[in-house]
Write a protein that binds this DNA or RNA. Sequence first.
DNA 1: CTGAAAGCGCTTACAG
DNA 2: CTGAAAGCGCTTACAG
Lengths: 347, 347
Amino acid sequence: MEQKHVGIRDVAKAAGVSVTTVSHVLNETPYARTSADTRRKVKEAAKALGYGPNRMAQSLRTKRSGMIGLLSEEIATTPHAGRIILGAQETARRHDLTLVIINSERDASDSTHRADVDALVDRQVDGILYATMYHREISLPANLSGTPAVLIDAVDRAGLVASVVPDEVGGARTAVQALLDAGHRRIGFLNNSDDVPATRGRLQGYREVLDATGVQFDESLVLSAVSEPAEGYAAALRILSADNPPTALFCYNDRMAMGAYRAAAELGLTIPRDLSIVGFDNQQIIAENLHPGLTTVALPHYEMGAWAVETLVELIQGHEEHALPTHYPTVLPCPLVTRESIAAPRG
Amino acid sequence: MEQKHVGIRDVAKAAGVSVTTVSHVLNETPYARTSADTRRKVKEAAKALGYGPNRMAQSLRTKRSGMIGLLSEEIATTPHAGRIILGAQETARRHDLTLVIINSERDASDSTHRADVDALVDRQVDGILYATMYHREISLPANLSGTPAVLIDAVDRAGLVASVVPDEVGGARTAVQALLDAGHRRIGFLNNSDDVPATRGRLQGYREVLDATGVQFDESLVLSAVSEPAEGYAAALRILSADNPPTALFCYNDRMAMGAYRAAAELGLTIPRDLSIVGFDNQQIIAENLHPGLTTVALPHYEMGAWAVETLVELIQGHEEHALPTHYPTVLPCPLVTRESIAAPRG
DNA sequence: CTGAAAGCGCTTACAG
DNA sequence: CTGAAAGCGCTTACAG
């Protein structure tokens, strides 16, 4: 039906007015006064013709594309990423912004990253979101500096751009507190062996809350391993077979917790009767389907995506005064998701 | 640094030539002859100024935006979706196309879908990819008809637009054949209870390969349930506790297989010694981390994304002659991923 | 081999 | 309250 593109001129002709007037009524230009009758005629003509303004032409004229770019490392292939996209997209839509997503490989070269940024800049995006697949410290492509930007789940080594990350310390405190509240005092920690912010933050939270409760920190209760089920299994087996084993385990993530479940089963330990476990990440498919369901701490992916867009919008509009100094990353809470893997210690 | 936008005029000025010439050398216009010296000067000036053409201005002029839209239902939140995006994006990049992703809610209204299509059309995308979160039959928004489009993991009820789906029948044949090859003859099938193409196709494949092998179809061996771990567990418990239970289970998906593993464990059955299991989907986190690893059939998500973009590019370029009649959906193979859950039946 | 000029579809001072 | 005209940054016949 709309074989040939219908433009603002067609609407003007149909309504018997000038294109100027059509533009004013369709955009509801605040200072432009138009008669009710004219407005009606224009709107009717536009609807009848199925007119939609050519956004590229608009952008060219207004210097605002209404698009923001989301540059992400492997985001499309990592399980949590979807919620970042969702949070960003729903928020973007609320601001009438279209999200353009570019997925780069995890270990892409600097020049690839620069090319991705250039692609976005050439497309005149109004701002850029830069997301990593897990909480990391990164250096940004130099050509990003000309465009408003915010980092998601990452902090800028140079401390120049706004960023939002999960509250690793607080999340760990929450998780361990749940164990303490249930009465546990010997709490093992299966930590990640990578030197990333989450590793350090979760250890810090673990220690802080133990301190606050007056429980002596016991180094032998903390094991580091690759944060996957197989390694979590091995580490759990080791710690649970030791003398004076812990009555509860705080796992760096749900994947390691998955391994810990298997270790417990092999050792004849029933969860949570003989062993309480708390995870981190709230990775749906794991936490919901382990038996019993895994109590864990959720990462605020959706919220980070939403926050990032809100902040980007402020940057674009030049309301930076409202924003905090960008070198302090914004930290979002990690709430506890209670299922059935925690009980009081035996006896 | 690049405070004010550098345009083609700046390059022309710096190189001491006209904008026409700059355009020709930068775009390598085939019929335009330029001296080697001019080309060098232009390229140097462009690089020195960090010039990148304004894609919106280009598009406005050329009527080709170089963008294709990916409209998806919940794609960002479903575990497999990432691979569709990845396949589509890598292929798009190879064709110098930018992918614009719009995520719509699963049960969005028709008007929301229309609005999403309009958003893409207003942005002048050259074509649209429409993806669903699992193999489905759908009706397309009417306003899609003006734009080249291809469906991913979905077929058009009206049979008008090109589409690509997994070979459900073939995948099921492959899965069941693996069980037959191991020597099983009593093979249970835990099917999905939803009336979707995968349910029908996988049942068909199961029957076909049984027939081909001369194994009598036994209705009591086929159970239908919600395709989740809990229901898979219940169904497996039921079928394995019956008289003359099957020696192997073909599960509609890995999630149900996950439940079947638990049922087997409770029944004291060791996999694969006492019971062989084959799944469908190759959902990484499940299939890899179940013990023993789950042999399953992979869905060609990446390939569907890639195929869809290739086909869309042909449609855009008007090479439809190459394409098959669009009312036959293209079907892509589902290969077996062998792990450790299949062995010969006991005794 | 090179350049002047029209025009893609809009918005926006500006004039009336 | 309404409209003629300039111009956003490019590409592309066309002329030379």
